Simulated assay, not measured.
Amino acid sequence: MRRLSNTAIASVTVVALCSGAWLLRSGAETHAPPQPSAAQAASPGAAAGREQAAPALPPSPPDRIRIPAIRVNAPLMGLNLTPQGSLDVPPAAKKNLAGWYQAGTTPGETGTAVVAGHVDNAEGPAVFYDLGSLKKGSTVEVQRRDGSVAVFAVDAVEVYDARNFPDEKVYGAARRPELRVITCGGGYSKATGYQGNVVVFAHLTGSR
């Protein structure tokens, strides 16, 4: 399959992830997911790609993502774009399922790979409920179909309002192997659900 540039994705990327049906039913005051602190944002003036990255891996579709610090161990399905240009999402009923943008970069090869998953569903927390609590330096592992595991280190964890989502920063081309892990976050409204997105920025540090 011919892979497309991630910049084709619209800023409403994970709008379908963000209804917050569980919060609507149970009350946002006691069940809101954790949000990243300012300390986990990218350092001001830091040049993208300054940290040393491991050599890129050949393309291979991913099958599973693991984030030990927040107890994530989930299968990955391929995601495409909707007719509106946003990234499609995994079925909400399958709360321990994430997806990757299969028309873009595969995790571990040079470029920016994108993974997205629900923060919750109508029954409770979903695969990336705790994503906002992840810290810089944490490890993200992606098991690939060729038998290798791509290992990434977290560079930053940030939250953006949907109206000011930085498309180029999140989806733009990279000269090294990078990964973005995205879910819903920010403020919450009973009328429209979550108001933004939590984004993890990571780069490849090795493989096994």
Rank of each mutant, 00 (worst) to 15 (best):
S37Y: 07
G185H: 07
A92P: 05
A32P: 07
L17H: 09
N6T: 06
G147M: 02
G185L: 07
A28P: 03
T112E: 12
A10L: 11
L79F: 03
S60M: 08
G78I: 00
L24Q: 14
G124P: 13
I182R: 11
A116G: 08
D130Y: 12
G137H: 00
T139G: 02
A202F: 03
A202R: 02
Q102S: 05
G117V: 08
L76C: 06
A113T: 01
A38G: 14
L81C: 01
R176E: 13
V119H: 04
I65K: 04
L24M: 12
L87P: 07
D63T: 12
P75R: 12
D155L: 01
V151Y: 00
P75M: 06
Y171R: 02
G111C: 03
Q40I: 00
F201G: 07
K94H: 14
A41Y: 15
V157S: 08
E29K: 14
V157A: 05
Y171H: 04
G147Q: 03
G27Q: 10
W22A: 13
Q52N: 14
E178W: 03
A53I: 08
T139D: 02
P90M: 03
T112Y: 01
D155V: 01
Q143S: 01
D161I: 04
Y171W: 08
P166F: 10
T82V: 05
S133V: 03
G49M: 06
T112C: 10
G104D: 02
I9W: 06
D88S: 13
G111K: 04
P58F: 12
R163Q: 13
A8Y: 07
T30Y: 14
L134G: 03
P44C: 15
A32I: 10
P33D: 09
S19A: 12
R50I: 14
K95A: 14
C18G: 13
S138M: 03
A47W: 07
P83I: 04
A150S: 03
V154E: 03
G20C: 05
I70E: 05
P34F: 11
P59Q: 02
V140M: 01
N80W: 02
S133D: 05
A74C: 08
S60N: 08
P75K: 10
H203F: 12
S60H: 11
V199W: 10
V198H: 04
S19T: 13
S138Q: 00
V198D: 11
